[in-house]
Structure formats: structure tokens, C-alpha cells
Design a binder for these strands. Structure first.
Lengths: 326, 326
DNA sequence: CTGAAAGCGCTTACAG
DNA sequence: CTGAAAGCGCTTACAG
């Protein structure tokens, strides 16, 4: 009814109002200003729902992340949101905790045309099930991906990053390098552990030890270190697969009377902001978090705009940031 | 067209399919199963856009936050998302950086019926302008609010929390208590500084000093402390209005050769998870972050469901968590 | 350059 | 218990 009201006020048809609204060329200037005036008078706000239904595009992107509280995730989301906004898209956020039930409810929005595409950051482990729900809809897998799924992905080379980190620690003279890993539902857990083991083997380091954190919290990191300290000989270095875990590792180490890095070198992963302000500052493997998000959006929009755009698996560079903890 | 396809397949009318879809009572069981079967056969997915347009409700909530990267914000968002999901609503997230331009684009979604209501966490300073855009739409102000705006709010008593924190430090024998504040665009900055000054006055403490951090980062916290250390006599305690700033304060203090808490007691604000794993663990004022989010959703839904529900200003409790840094 | 009409895919009184 | 019809508020060929 609303566009109709404007039309009556301006003495034109709904079509003309629509043309003005969408800045179509070829509306007589005089008509245009009359319509604009009418729009102002009645404070007309277009009903976007109707527009979306009619044009069958919503300019909305669905984002499925497992934990918005994880600083890595929130930085990626920041990147996603900024790029989406720059391209005229908006973000529908679902904090899934990798639970299919929650995911399903949101994906109904995708198949229900409320969103034009989806970016997932869920554990690789549940991607196959998601595939069934998402079907053919435009989809980009961010950070976590399943190579068997026909959807683009953006990630880093986790195996290489882990491999080089172990080599870095070995170069510094460390001989008993432990890994604090987490949940094996995640692809990165497998890849980083793979890199860790490869490096130990290649470097002929026979001491190896892995502790698994139950979740990505400092407490879980502390618990993991305590577990590592129970063995007959202690590690002299710990590589944690997340900065948050590393904070807990350092905390538990100091609590146990160890000096960092003298007695125990610690390296984290992600490159979260606060790592540079810890005591000691934390050495970490920095992921291009904003880029991961931004590129995901770009690839997704490619697919939305040209449904037959090729599927690509993009690998972004990581970077070691050396600080006092190692 | 789609519901029509199902209807043809099942040999009924669109109306009947719709009734089955919405579990209306009074559909003959036999008809029901026939429709359900047809739905399965053609893998029908309802177009939610059409439904939303027709019923003029979207079950979508717009969330405007200034910085998703701030751990406080992401915890509140977590609370918002969880409660919304529990009530059958979804979240549209805008990372505004308190920029009106970005906000305006999202608010168009609200007035354009894509969202049923809005929760803002933006700086109080830009709330008046938002008011103009939001108009009469259901709105809850979370953490930051403007008392002059006719919309509900959920927050804590910042003035009281700051007051009690200063008293707590004074009780511990501290005499030169400084404040590390941030951006005065925020209401909480004013309130906490107010509480700080009130307490000093009431306690007859004449030493006072405030440093302003340019943003909520550890680096800004460090810079603020360095500034405080330039004076003739140093503070013996710092109250920082955010845990993130406090991390930077502690870092710069240690760097300057001060012991925490012996030479300088430090108290943060928010109750972010990692504060307990810092070295030393950080004393902080804990805000009920999930509750702030959850209650905001509840108040907003009240308003959405009954547009004449009264406006309320809810104040949630805060809690001091005492640790080694003070 | 502008308008009348069809249609996006649903839901909901209103009849029967 | 079920169906025909109107309508949510737009946009877009198609005429003129």
C-alpha cells in the first residue's frame, strides 16, 4: 500500500515511484522531483521484504560460527562484516556451538530465501551433515573445510605452520616439544598435529607428547599443561594450537614454578591482539583473520553473482611473530 | 509457485498445504499425511520471505554493536543470540564502530520490516541520532543508554561499581588511586568516572589522576599507564574501566619495573574469561554479560508482542572478583 | 517517458 | 474440514 500512497501523492503510478526509488534512468527530472517530494512528505520507507521477495535476492549472508566468544572467530567475523557491508550485504549471525539443531534452524533461512549464501566456520566434522541441509546454495567454508565438499574454502596451511613452529623451537635448542591440541572434530587439530609429528620425525626428535584441551579456554590450557607436567620428563617447550590455550599454559607453568621461556618455551596460534601484552609476551603464529573473513565474502559473492563460478580452495599466508615466550 | 506445486501433487488447495505447514488444527489426518508426503516428495522448502511479508513479522532481531572484537561485546552477543534462538528469533549483526553511516544502512532493515526490533550497544553519544532513524520501532538499549530516550534499557550501576572499587582499594591502604578511562562518548565512562570522583571526595583522598585511553586495546592501556607514571608522584593503584585496558596497564607496569600489586594495584572491569589466567590474575568487576544480552532480548520481545508494554530501565547486579593483582 | 497489469509465494478471512 | 479469492508491497516486462 505504501508505494501506492506515494504514487497518489505525486500523481504518478507505482511503477514510476519504483523507478525513482531504484534510480532508473529515464524518468523525467520534473517527475522525479515530484516523487521525491512525496516520499519526503509521507516519510516513506520501502518495505524491503517485498522487494526481496520480488527480486528474489535478500543481500543477506548467513554466517555460522561455532563460538563468537573465541577471539579468533570474532576477528574473522569482523572481517566478514566489513567486507559484506562494503559490498552492500548484511550479516545474519548464528552462534552454533557446532550443534546441528541450531544450525538447521538458520539454514532454513538460507533455503527459505532470507539469505543469499552462507559462510561456515563450523568444525569440519559436522560439515558433511551441513552439506545435506545446504544443498546447492552458495557456500564458502572459512578456516574449517572438508575437501570432499563441493564448496569453496579459505584457510591457511596449518600443517606447514605447525611444522615450521616445531622446527623453530628445535632450532632454539628445544628437545622435548609438546603439543597442546584441542578437539579432534576440527580439521585444524588434525593438520597441526600432523605437522607437529612430521617435524619431529624429520628432525629426528623422539620425545613427543600431546595433551588435548576439552575446549578453547585458558583453564583448559592450564589443565593440559598440568597433564604434561605429570610425566617422567617434562617438556621444555609447548606449542599450543590457540593463543587462548597458550595463556593458560603460561599461567599453569608459572604457577608450577617454571620460568617462561627459560624452563619452558611457549608458542601460541592465531595472533590475537592481547598476546603482545602478556607477561611474557607470547610468540604466536599469526593468521590473517580479517583476510580470512574478507576473502570468504568475496568468493561467496562471486558464486552468488555467477552461480557457475569455479570452486576454489584459497590458502592464505601465516606469519610467525616472535616474542619473549620462546 | 512452490506451495502450489505441493498442492497439486497432494490434490488439495494451497490453503490446506499452508494449514498443514503451520500445524493448524482441524485438518483431516488423512489429508494431512497426503500433504506431508507431497512435501517430502518434492523436497519443498517454504519461502520465508513470502511468509514474512504476508504475516508482517520476520522473527529477526537487529543487533548494533560498536566492536565485536571487544570480549565484553562478544559475550553479550552470545547471550543475545542464545536467548533469541530459544524464543525462535534470529540475529542480524551490525558491527557499527559507532559510525552513523553504517548504522543507518542496517536500520533501514528495521524500518523496512526485515527485522522486528533492535538492540543497541552503541555509545550513548550517538543514541539521539539513532533515535531519529529508529523512530517508533521496538528498541532496547543494552549497557549504553540515554535516559531521555523512550526505549527500555538494561545495564548495571556503573557509578556504584566504580565507587565501591575505589573504596575497596582505599581499604587496602592505597592512597594514590588513578583511573584509566576511555572515550567519553560512552555513558559508562562518565558514570565510572563519576563514581571514582565521588569516592575520592567522600574518602577524603585528595590525590586524583585520570588518563584516557584512545580505544579499548591493551596498547592503549599501556600508553595510559605510561602517562600516569610521568607525574611527580606515581599512583599506587589503577582502576581501569575495562579488562583489556587493565592487561595493558599491568604489562606497562611490569615493563617499567613496578611490581603488581606491591607497587601498583590494578583492578579491571567486565570479568572477561582470561583475567583469571593472567600473571598476576586480575581483580575485576564482573558484569553479568550473558544476562545483559538475554534480558535485552526478553524486554524487546515483550515490546514486540505487546507494543504498549511499559518502558523499563533494568539494572543488573555487578560483582567484584578479587584476585592477586590488588 | 509513463502506466496498467501480472506476479513473487505465501496466509487468512470468508464461504460452503 | 476444505477451497477460491484477496492481498502483503514491491518490480518488471509490455504497451503506448
Amino acid at each position: 500500500m505504501s508505494i501506492e500512497k506515494v504514487a497518489r501523492l505525486a500523481g504518478v503510478s507505482k511503477a514510476t515511484v519504483s523507478r525513482v526509488l531504484n534510480q532508473h534512468p529515464g524518468v523525467r527530472p520534473e517527475t522525479r522531483t515530484r516523487v521525491l517530494a512525496a516520499i519526503n512528505v509521507c516519510e516513506y520507507q520501502p518495505n524491503l521484504l517485498a522487494r526481496q521477495l520480488r527480486t528474489s535476492q535478500s543481500n543477506m549472508l548467513l554466517v555460522l560460527i561455532s563460538d563468537i566468544t573465541n577471539p579468533f572467530c570474532s576477528r574473522v567475523v569482523e572481517g566478514i562484516e566489513a567486507e559484506a557491508e562494503a559490498q552492500g550485504y548484511h550479516i545474519l549471525l548464528c552462534n552454533t556451538r557446532s550443534q546441528l539443531r541450531r544450525e538447521a534452524a538458520y539454514i532454513a533461512l538460507l533455503t527459505g530465501k532470507v539469505a543469499d549464501g552462507v559462510i561456515t566456520m563450523d568444525a569440519a566434522d559436522c560439515l558433511q551433515e551441513l552439506q545435506g541441509l545446504i544443498g546447492e546454495s552458495p557456500w564458502v567454508q572459512c578456516a574449517e573445510y572438508d575437501p570432499a565438499i563441493p564448496a569453496s574454502s579459505v584457510s591457511i596451511n596449518n600443517r606447514e605452520a605447525a611444522f615450521e613452529t616445531v622446527r623453530f623451537l628445535a632450532d632454539k635448542g628445544r628437545r622435548r616439544i609438546a603439543l597442546v591440541n584441542c578437539d579432534m572434530r576440527y580439521l585444524y587439530s588434525h593438520q597441526r598435529e600432523g605437522g607437529y609429528r612430521d617435524a619431529l620425525e624429520q628432525l629426528d626428535l623422539h620425545w613427543s607428547r600431546v595433551a588435548y584441551a576439552g575446549n578453547i579456554t585458558c583453564e583448559a590450557g592450564s589443565a593440559a599443561l598440568r597433564e604434561l607436567l605429570t610425566g617422567p620428563d617434562r617438556p621444555d617447550a609447548v606449542f599450543a594450537v590457540s593463543d587462548v590455550l597458550a595463556v593458560g599454559v603460561v599461567h599453569a607453568a608459572l604457577e608450577a614454578g617454571l620460568r617462561v621461556p627459560e624452563d619452558l618455551a611457549v608458542v601460541g596460534f592465531d595472533g590475537i591482539n592481547f598476546t603482545s601484552s602478556l607477561n611474557p609476551p607470547l610468540t604466536t603464529i599469526e593468521q590473517p583473520m580479517n583476510q580470512l573473513g574478507a576473502r570468504s565474502v568475496q568468493l561467496l559473492l562471486n558464486r552468488i553473482r555467477q552461480p557457475h563460478a569455479p570452486i576454489v580452495h584459497e590458502v592464505l599466508p601465516w606469519k610467525r611473530v616472535e616474542r619473549a615466550s620462546s
